[in-house]
Design a protein around this nucleic acid. Structure first.
Lengths: 170, 170
DNA sequence: TTTTCTATTTAGAATTATTCTAAGTAGGCT
DNA sequence: AGCCTACTTAGAATAATTCTAAATAGAAAA
């Protein structure tokens, strides 16, 4: 299971036709587990699984950084040159709405996308621009919830640190 | 001291000239304490105190919600009809840079401005749109800091809850 | 299979918050 | 009084995102 997730990013070109066309990066390297996850989530909300949605989802799972829509668009075109930016936005919206990925915002910078669905915060390094996931303990989350006034209930807490990451320290 | 802050919002029209013009809301209701705070902060960073900057600052202190630039622009024009939106943006930037106010962002919505400089989180009510300051204990802040990996240091933590506020609960 | 029907994709226009530009203004300093 | 620079102003420019309308795809019906 763990292995299959890691192998996500390793491609098998062996089944491709002998290329008379220049070799392009094939799309859809989704593991069966992730494919099922995607299909189920889309079906549950009455939407179709499309090549574009699979492609975008697989890109996000493969390279686990926090790309913007533009960056995803650039990566997506490598394996699917005809995809449009509007479709990238549409797919990202669909994946977000079906809780397969989440959006991450820093100040008013372009929205970034993240396939890590565990409760976690983000650390933004001002030096390198790097964004790092910070796991949060259940205890900390419940303390944060307990801080709310009587009668308030939160569906979500968004926590963003900014400063200097380990790499960028003297 | 506390009284003078509260009285901020109460206007004294008595010193105005007998109006041959329609009476407009005068600007600059800054208490001496806040005036000094503003003057000092601006002077320290080599900038001037202007009518516009005083006006914007006083508006933010007077009504302690979390207005957007547009809302501030609308309020500002009541007492200063000739002010421009660009100036509102400029003033807000200056006040932010001199740490007299802070910016608050939710998702990619328009930036909001907040004169509360204590360490606090924001609660955004999806029902009423209300934004409420949530005070955070020192203990909680240091626990959040302690959660960071070795070698990381944060200048700032941005915490935004969203859900239903007390008013909007059944 | 062929047809039908609706969801999806696409290109490009539109929107919107914010920043930039260049010209005018104000007010402290010689 | 005149100069100098910071500030304000109106409007143009920018950039991320959403909208629009036409083309496409692929599931379901016939």
């Amino acid at each position: 299971m763990l292995l299959s997730l890691i192998n996500n990013s390793i491609q098998d070109h062996s089944k491709q036709k002998y290329a008379s066309q220049p070799l392009i990066r094939p799309y859809m390297q989704l593991s069966p587990q992730h494919k099922e996850l995607l299909d189920d989530a889309l079906e549950r909300s009455g939407q179709r699984t499309t090549k574009q949605r699979e492609h975008i989802f697989s890109l996000l799972l493969e390279k686990r950084d926090h790309p913007t829509a533009d960056e995803i668009y650039a990566r997506a075109r490598e394996g699917m040159p005809s995809i449009s930016l509007a479709t990238v936005y549409n797919c990202l919206e669909t994946l977000t709405d079906t809780s397969l990925i989440r959006q991450v915002n820093f100040e008013r910078e372009p929205t970034r996308y993240c396939p890590n669905l565990t409760q976690h915060a983000h650390f933004y390094c001002r030096e390198s621009g790097e964004i790092v996931d910070i796991e949060l303990s259940e205890k900390l989350i419940s303390e944060l919830m307990a801080t709310l006034p009587e009668g308030f209930s939160a569906q979500h807490i968004d926590i963003a640190y900014d400063g200097k990451c380990g790499e960028c320290h003297d």
